[in-house]
């Protein structure tokens, strides 16, 4: 299967401080790739760089066979690259319905978006007139996910989906992620806590200090994760 997203030697920096030191990663169409790593490894920077929110210092980001270095975030979003940011990025003072209306910029009808969303997340149907800031963390995350899906993404980037949520909610969300992937959307999911995501991932990569330290099937990664987090594994980008 051809890769929908390829990263080749991607480097990114905040001013003089380089955070990504040459990341190589392939995401085949319709697959779920988990990017794991300890705090400060560069996971969020990696997603922001793919989404066009953070400038790439060197290397290439190839999306659907085309190098997209320097393409603006809004152009990528219009094409179908969707980032669900860490901390949900929802508007606390807008209702569920208003959030979904915002996501109709891609030309879809609100009624279609609502029908699809409420079928996928019945709990949001009960909250459709409620302002998002008063909903639970899990419902807010569902809304962030639903808003992203309403734009019909081809590549979905999920940043710390489980952050601050109860384990049962996390499990429910990842069941949905699995269903989304089954419908053909390619997903890159970044997580600090691996257990939740490894069950749904097709393969996983461990990012340690700005480099891919481990790459492979989830079961193998899970057994080597502690060692990788503690820096015992030497980087092997094309493992």
């Amino acid at each position: 299967m051809t890769a929908l997203l390829s990263l080749r030697g991607v480097r990114a920096a905040y001013g003089p401080i380089e955070v990504l030191h040459g990341v190589d990663l392939e995401v085949p169409a319709g697959s779920v790739v988990a990017v794991l790593g300890p705090n400060g490894a560069g996971k969020t920077t990696l997603l922001n760089t793919i989404a066009g929110l953070h400038p790439i210092a060197s290397g290439s980001i190839v999306v659907a066979g085309r190098r997209v270095n320097g393409v603006t975030a809004d152009a990528l979003a219009r094409a179908g690259v969707c980032l669900v940011p860490e901390g949900r990025g929802i508007f606390a003072n807008l209702t569920v319905q208003e959030h979904l209306r915002m996501a109709t910029h891609s030309g879809r009808r609100l009624a279609d978006v609502e029908a699809e969303t409420y079928e996928r997340f019945p709990r949001l149907a009960e909250r459709r007139q409620q302002v998002a800031g008063t909903m639970s963390g899990g419902e807010q995350q569902m809304l962030a996910l639903a808003r992203g899906l309403a734009t019909r993404p081809a590549l979905l980037l999920l940043d710390e989906l489980s952050m601050g949520l109860a384990p049962l909610i996390v499990e429910e969300l990842y069941t949905q992620v699995s269903a989304i992937a089954a419908s053909g959307v390619s997903i890159v999911v970044v997580e600090q806590f691996a257990h939740a995501v490894l069950g749904v991932a097709d393969f996983a990569a461990v990012l340690v200090q700005g480099r891919i330290g481990l790459l492979g099937p989830p079961d193998r990664i899970e057994s080597q994760l502690s060692a990788a987090y503690l820096g015992a594994t030497t980087p092997a980008p094309n493992d």
């Binding site: 085309r66 603006t72 152009a75 179908g80 959307v185």
Partner: peptide
């Protein structure tokens, strides 16, 4: 959800049309 093979083709076309700048 929606016709994904079509969606991916559409995605490739949209990406190909992007104006790539420095």
């Amino acid at each position: 959800m929606h016709g994904q093979p079509d969606r991916i083709e559409q995605f490739k076309a949209d990406i190909a049309e992007l104006r790539i700048t420095d």
